Amino acid sequence: MAAPMVPPNAWTGMAAGLAVEELETELLLEAVFQRFGHDFRAYDRQALRDRLARVLRTLGARTLSGLQERVLHDGAEASRLLRAFSPAPAGLFDNPGHASRLRTVLAPSLRGWPLPRVWIAECAGVGEAWTLAIVLAEEGVLGRLDIHATLANEELVAEHQDAWLPLAELEAARERHAGSGGTGDLAAWFEIEDGKARLQAQLRRRITWSQYSLVTDASFNEFQAIVSCHALADFGPVLRQRVLRLFHDSLARFGVLCLDQPLSVADAHAGSYQAVAGERPWYKRVG
């Protein structure tokens, strides 16, 4: 059966609609950059459309132009939009396979360094940072370690610095913790009060939360490991290369790099890395 014919004027209308949407997107991103200093202009276009579509549904806005007006004039609406571009919060030990690799790849690589530093770039909240801290404590390397957890969203950084989790989330993570190779009682690493749980102070002190943009900021330290599980998939090709150069400038030789997407031969400094076998892309810098 032949496909129905689409009238030429329908194609013209569809093209015009896409052109208007693209123009609205560009104007919104420019407005966000000029007003709030957050630069999403080099993000992958499909990733942008998906996120903006979710924001439109959540806020009940009909068009991106209408969303732009609300964002520029309402602080609460701006906050919701900016949060939509941050990584979704990760649960405690939400990926036992990844946590297991932290034990088998990351922890051994840090033992040979006198004062190792780990950077979690675009950290997915306290679930990701606390999981890392607990794993490294259980593997005996946390006592001489600095963990730097960064996010572009300054509002989220402030929230994570003194965060608590509902006790139910800690209970739900017990099985995942055991599945990652954890031993002992997960709750032993937490302070529990009024139905809430917070990582022990001795571990929290090892985590420095700070505002940092992968899009605009320069290298700020040398690290023995960089973990970036929530960034590259959102970035367009130019921004991807920019961030990979940034990671290379920030990673010590023989340090390890964990990414959310594998490197390709065309990527910046790809020849400087040796892949570490496993499910998620891990690399050791050898050049």
Rank of each mutant, 00 (worst) to 15 (best):
A2V: 10
A3F: 12
P4F: 14
P7T: 00
N9G: 10
A10T: 15
T12R: 15
M14S: 07
L18Q: 10
L18Y: 14
L18H: 02
E21W: 04
L23K: 11
E26Y: 00
E26K: 06
L27E: 04
V32W: 05
V32Q: 01
F33T: 12
F33D: 09
R35F: 06
H38M: 12
R41V: 01
A42E: 15
D44C: 11
R45C: 01
R51W: 00
L52E: 00
L52F: 08
R54E: 11
T58M: 09
A61C: 15
A61M: 10
R62T: 05
L64W: 02
L64K: 02
G66E: 13
D74A: 13
A76F: 10
E77N: 00
S79V: 03
L81K: 00
L82M: 06
S86D: 11
A88R: 08
A88S: 06
P89T: 04
P89Q: 07
G91Q: 14
P96T: 02
G97H: 15
A99V: 01
S100I: 00
T104R: 10
A107M: 08
R111Y: 03
R111C: 06
G112Y: 04
W113E: 10
L115I: 04
R117I: 09
R117T: 04
R117E: 11
I120A: 02
I120C: 13
A121D: 05
C123R: 08
A124Q: 07
G125V: 03
V126Y: 11
E128S: 12
W130E: 04
L136V: 05
E139S: 13
G143V: 04
D146R: 14
H148I: 13
A149T: 07
A149K: 01
T150K: 04
L151V: 06
E155N: 06
A158C: 09
A158D: 10
E159D: 00
D162W: 09
P166N: 12
A168G: 06
A168H: 09
E169D: 07
E169W: 06
A172I: 07
R174P: 10
G181S: 10
G182H: 03
T183Q: 15
A187K: 03
A188K: 04
W189E: 05
E191A: 01
D194Y: 05
K196M: 15
R198V: 07
L199S: 01
A201N: 01
Q202T: 06
L203H: 08
R204D: 13
W209R: 03
Y212K: 09
S213A: 03
V215G: 05
D217L: 02
A218H: 10
E222I: 09
F223I: 12
S228H: 05
H230S: 15
L232W: 13
F235H: 00
L239S: 05
R240N: 00
Q241K: 07
L246E: 08
H248R: 04
R253W: 01
L257D: 07
V265P: 07
A266S: 13
D267S: 01
H269I: 02
S272E: 13
S272D: 12
Y273W: 14
Q274C: 11
Q274E: 15
A277G: 01
A277E: 10
G278R: 10
E279V: 12
R280F: 08
P281M: 11
W282A: 05
W282I: 03
Y283C: 09
Y283K: 05
V286F: 09
G287C: 03
